[in-house]
Design a protein around this nucleic acid. Structure first.
Length: 805
DNA sequence: TCTGACTGCCC
DNA sequence: ATTCTGC
DNA sequence: GCAGAATGGGCAGTCAGA
C-alpha cells in the first residue's frame, strides 16, 4: 500500500521488509480504527454555512461556557475589558551606532587572500587520503573497543591519582596509550605541516565522525584528537577551530550576527548550482538537512576549476565578513560570499559550511562537550612529563567549564590555555564586571510536592517568578553600567532608563557590582505589572530615554559581585542579605523580588496563588544555605526550581484542539512530521480556526505513529472552512481532514497577528494564539466538534489574571 | 514611501 | 520557552 | 541529570521590492 493521497517522497527509515510489514499492520489498524468515530464529522463535512464571522455578541454565554472547559475553577467571571496589549507607536529613528564594545580580539589581516594555498591544488586530492588515514587510526581504536573497552575509555577509567594510590600498572597503561595516541598525531600523517594554516577539512572530517557517534565519551575523544593535532602543529589556529566547533563567531556580548537564514541559503545554493529554489526546497523536505542538500547538489555539478582550499582561519574570517555586511545590497553580497564558500568547499566540507551558516551543527556536539574536549586536548598536549590520567583530565575539564561559565569568552581563554598550565587558568580568567556571566537557570517542577522532595532537608525560599526579561546588570569601577540578556547579548542600549536609574538605587560606597534581575513592563499609574507581550514592544536598539513608551520595573533577586568581591560561592542567604543592604528600592522602578521563606505545602501553594494573582508566572524556589545555594553560572546545574501553574496538573485549563495540517520535520525528525497546525472549533460559523502550531510534548514513537495515522486523512487542499494564515512558516506542507483531537497545555493565551482563533470575539481583526503549547495526550474520546470552541478560547483569554485588571 | 519577507532574540 | 532521548 | 536537538508565539530591525 503506498501513500496515496499526496505524493510523499519521504522514505521511512525502516528497512524495506519491515516497512512492508508495518504497512500491512497499518492497514488493519486503519480499517479497524480510524473511521469509527468520524460520523459526526461526516455529517457536517459539507462546508458549513458561509456566513462571515460577524458574531452576535454573546459575552454572557461565553462566560458560562468557559466554566465548562474543564478546569477546576474559572475564577471570578471575567471583567469586561478590551485588550490591554498596547501597541505603542514610537518612531524615534535616530541612527547612531554607539558604543560597540571593541573586540578584544586582534583583527588579523583585514585583507582577503589565501595565497599560500593557491598552489596546493594537487595536494587537495591527496588531502582526502591523508584525512582518511587520520581517520583510520581513530577507527582502529574504535574497533578495539568492540573486543575490549576502548583504550581511551580505559584511560578515562583508570582510577589512580598521582602517586599515592599505587596502581602503577594502570598508570603505565595510560601513559602508554597516551604515547601511542601522541604518535598517531604524528604531524607527517596530517594533511598540513606544522606552522601552516589548518585546513577546514580537518574539522569537517572530524564533524563527520562525530555525527555518526552517539556516545558522548567517544565524541569527546574525537574532538580532543582533532584539537590536539592543531595544538601541536598550528596553535594559532586553535581559537578558530574552537569557534567553528561551537559554531560561534565571537563572544555573545559582541553581538556579531550572521544575518543568514534558510531563505538566503536556499537562494545562494540555487544560484551556485544552477537549480531552482523550489527544487532545493523539495530536496530539503526529503532529506531534512540543507547541508546534505548542498553537498549532493554540488557533487552532481561539475567543478569548473579547483578553488583554493579552505582553511579554518579563512572560513572563520569569511563568516565574520558575512556578519559585517550591512545596508543596501548586503543581501546580494552575502549571497555571493556564500556562493564563493560553496564553490571552494570540497565534499563533506560543503555540508558543514552550510550548517555553520544555519547556526546549527546538529551533530551532537555543542558547547559543553567542546569545553571538555578543549580541556583534555590542552592537558594532553603538555610537553612535560606529567602523565595525564583520568583525574587530571576531569579536573582540567571542570576547571575550564567553571572558568568559561564565569568568563564566556574564548578570545580571552584560549590564549591563556596555550601559554600556561590549565591549573593557572582561574588566575587569569575569572568573573569580572563588564563581561556577562552565564545566568543560573531553573529546573521545572510538576508541583509543590516535587519541590519538597528535591529540597527535602534544606531550608529554601520562594520568590515570585516575574514575566519579563532577564537582565544582568554590571557596573564596572569606572562607573559604566551595562545590561546583558539571558543569552549574554548586550542590551545596554535597550534600557537607557535603567542605566539612568542605577545611581539612584546604589549606596555611595558602591563601586562595582553584578546584579541578577528581571526587567518587567510596568504601569506606574495603576501600579500594575504588564504582560510580557507589552515589554516586547520596546525598542531594542539605541533607545532614547525621553521617548520610551513602555515603562519598566526592575526586580532584583541576586547579586554576584560587589566592590571587587565575587559572591558566587557565598550562600544565597548571604547574597540576598548583601543585595538588600546595598541597594535601595525605588517605588515603581526598582524592587527586590517578592519572596517568602515558606516551608510547608499550604504556605507555598498560597504564595504561588499570590504570585499568579500578582501577574507573575509562578515561583522560583532556591535553597538558602550551604553548597547547594551557591550561584552556579552555567547551563548545567539547574539548582533552582521553578513552579508554574501550568506545570501543575489541573491548575490551568488545557485545550482540546484539532490538527488540521502538518509540517515536514527537519534533522532528527526527517521522515515524519515535525510540527502540526492546530485549530479550535467555531460553533457559530462551523469553521476550524488555527490557534497554534505544536511540535513539543510528542515522543519519537508518537511522531512515527502520527505520521502513519494521518496518512489516510490527508487532503490535497485545505477545507474551505479552515481559517488560517498563509504567510510563510504557517502554511502546512500537508492538510488533514478534521478528525483527530489532541489535548494541549499552554501557559497563556495571547492576541495573535497570525492565528485566527476566536477572531472577532476579543479583537476585531486578530485572533488568539497559545503561548508555549505542548501536547498532553491524544483525545480518542472526542470528535472534532467537541474540540474547545472559539467562545471558550475567548473566555479563557479574558479570564487570564493580567488581562482583565 | 510603504509593505512583506526574513532574521535574531526574547520568552 | 517545553519536551524528549541517549548516555 | 546532563547535554543536545527537536519544536512553540511574537516582537523589532533590516532589507528588497512594489
Amino acid at each position: 500500500p503506498s501513500k496515496s493521497t499526496i505524493e510523499f517522497f519521504f522514505k521511512p527509515k525502516t528497512q524495506p521488509p519491515e516497512e512492508a510489514k508495518k504497512c500491512e499492520e497499518k492497514d488493519e489498524e486503519d480499517s479497524a480504527d480510524s473511521p469509527a468515530k468520524l460520523k459526526t464529522t461526516e455529517e457536517r463535512a459539507t462546508p458549513p454555512t458561509r456566513k462571515r464571522l460577524r458574531q452576535v455578541d454573546s459575552d454572557d454565554e461565553d462566560a458560562d461556557k468557559a466554566k465548562t472547559v474543564g478546569g477546576p475553577s474559572s475564577k471570578k467571571d471575567e471583567a469586561e475589558s478590551s485588550s490591554s496589549v498596547a501597541v505603542p507607536a514610537e518612531e524615534v529613528l535616530e541612527k547612531e551606532r554607539c558604543e560597540q564594545p571593541e573586540s578584544s580580539r586582534k583583527p588579523k589581516d583585514e585583507k582577503f587572500e589565501v595565497t599560500m594555498k593557491a598552489a596546493k591544488k594537487g595536494e587537495g586530492a591527496k588531502k582526502e587520503e591523508g584525512a582518511d588515514r587520520v581517520q583510520s587510526h581513530a577507527k582502529a581504536s574504535n574497533d578495539k573497543s568492540e573486543t575490549k573497552p576502548a583504550a581511551r575509555e580505559q584511560e578515562a577509567a583508570s582510577d589512580d591519582d598521582q602517586n599515592d594510590n599505587g596502581q602503577d600498572e594502570d598508570d603505565e597503561e595510560v601513559k602508554e596509550e597516551i604515547l601511542k595516541r601522541s604518535s598517531m598525531l604524528d604531524t607527517g600523517k596530517l594533511s598540513w605541516k606544522p606552522g601552516q594554516p589548518v585546513p577546514y577539512s580537518h574539522l569537517a572530517t572530524m564533524f563527520e565522525k562525530v555525527e555518526k557517534e552517539s556516545k558522548r565519551l567517544e565524541i569527546i575523544s574525537l574532538v580532543t584528537d582533532c584539537l590536539r593535532s592543531v595544538i601541536e602543529t598550528t596553535p594559532e589556529d586553535l581559537l578558530f577551530c574552537v569557534y567553528l566547533c561551537v559554531n560561534k563567531l565571537a563572544p555573545a556580548h559582541e553581538g556579531v550576527e550572521l544575518g543568514i537564514g534558510d531563505m538566503i541559503l536556499k537562494k545562494a545554493l540555487a544560484e551556485a548550482t544552477g537549480r531552482q529554489v523550489k527544487d532545493i526546497q523539495s530536496d530539503y523536505d526529503k532529506v531534512g538537512d540543507l547541508g546534505t542538500v548542498a553537498m549532493k547538489s554540488r557533487s552532481t555539478q561539475r567543478v569548473m576549476f579547483a578553488a583554493k582550499s579552505l582553511t579554518v582561519q579563512t572560513l572563520h574570517k569569511s563568516l565574520l565578513q558575512i556578519a559585517k555586511m550591512t545596508g543596501k545590497d548586503s543581501g546580494t553580497l552575502k549571497k555571493d560570499k556564500i556562493k564563493s564558500l560553496l564553490v571552494a568547499a570540497k565534499g563533506i566540507e560543503t555540508q558543514f559550511i552550510v550548517r555553520h551558516l544555519q547556526g546549527k551543527m546538529r551533530i551532537g556536539l555543542a558547547e559543553q562537550t567542546v569545553l571538555v574536549a578543549l580541556a583534555h586536548s590542552i592537558a594532553l598536549s603538555v610537553p612535560q612529563g606529567t602523565k595525564p590520567n583520568k583525574q587530571i583530565l576531569e579536573k582540567a575539564a571542570e576547571t575550564l567549564r567553571e572558568v568559561y561559565s564565569q568568563l564566556p569568552c574564548y578570545d580571552k581563554i584560549v590564549p591563556v590555555l596555550l601559554k600556561e598550565p590549565i591549573n593557572n587558568l582561574p588566575l587569569n580568567c575569572y568573573l569580572q564586571p563588564g563581561i556577562p556571566v552565564h545566568p543560573m537557570l531553573a529546573h521545572p517542577t510538576k508541583g509543590v510536592s516535587e519541590v519538597l522532595d528535591r529540597f527535602a532537608d534544606q531550608t529554601f525560599t520562594c520568590e515570585y517568578k516575574y514575566d519579563g526579561e532577564r537582565g544582568q546588570i554590571h557596573m564596572t569601577p569606572d562607573g559604566t553600567v551595562r545590561i546583558f540578556s539571558r543569552n549574554s547579548e548586550d542590551n545596554t542600549s535597550k534600557y537607557p532608563d535603567l542605566i539612568a536609574l542605577m545611581p539612584k538605587v546604589i549606596k555611595e560606597q558602591t563601586k562595582s557590582f553584578i546584579l541578577d534581575a528581571e526587567v518587567v513592563a510596568y504601569d506606574r499609574e495603576t501600579k500594575k505589572i504588564l504582560p510580557f507581550q507589552v515589554l516586547s514592544t520596546r525598542k531594542r536598539k539605541d533607545a532614547n530615554e525621553d521617548t520610551i513608551t513602555v515603562q519598566v520595573c526592575l526586580f532584583a533577586f541576586d547579586i554576584l559581585y560587589y566592590n571587587g568581591d565575587p559572591l558566587i560561592k557565598r550562600s544565597f542567604h548571604e547574597r540576598r542579605e548583601l543585595l538588600k543592604s546595598t541597594f535601595t528600592e525605588v517605588e515603581g522602578s526598582f524592587a527586590f523580588a517578592k519572596s517568602r521563606d515558606a516551608s510547608d505545602t499550604e504556605e507555598i501553594l498560597a504564595f504561588l496563588n499570590d504570585a499568579v494573582a500578582d501577574s507573575c508566572e509562578g515561583l522560583m524556589v532556591k535553597t538558602l544555605f550551604g553548597d547547594s545555594s551557591t550561584y552556579e553560572p552555567a547551563q548545567r546545574s539547574h539548582k533552582w526550581l521553578k513552579v508554574k501553574k501550568d506545570y501543575i496538573d489541573g491548575m490551568t485549563d488545557s485545550l482540546d484542539l484539532v490538527p488540521i495540517g502538518a509540517f515536514f520535520g527537519k534533522g532528527k525528525r526527517t521522515g515524519v512530521y515535525g510540527a502540526f497546525l492546530l485549530a479550535c472549533y467555531n460553533e457559530e460559523t462551523e469553521d476550524f480556526e488555527a490557534i497554534c502550531k505544536i511540535g513539543t510534548g510528542i515522543s519519537d514513537t508518537q511522531l512515527k505513529e502520527f505520521y502513519d495515522a494521518f496518512e489516510p486523512i490527508i487532503i490535497s487542499e485545505p477545507k474551505s472552512y479552515y481559517q488560517y494564515d498563509d504567510s510563510p512558516g504557517l502554511l502546512p506542507n500537508v492538510w488533514f481532514e478534521p478528525k483527530i483531537v489532541w489535548e494541549v497545555a499552554a501557559a497563556d493565551l495571547s492576541i495573535s497577528p497570525k492565528h485566527k482563533a476566536a477572531i472577532g470575539l476579543v479583537d476585531e481583526s486578530r485572533g488568539i494564539a497559545l503561548r508555549f503549547p505542548r501536547l498532553v495526550r491524544v483525545r480518542d474520546d472526542k470528535g472534532p466538534e467537541q474540540a474547545t470552541s472559539s467562545t471558550q478560547v475567548a473566555a479563557m483569554y479574558r479570564n487570564q489574571a493580567v488581562i482583565g485588571q
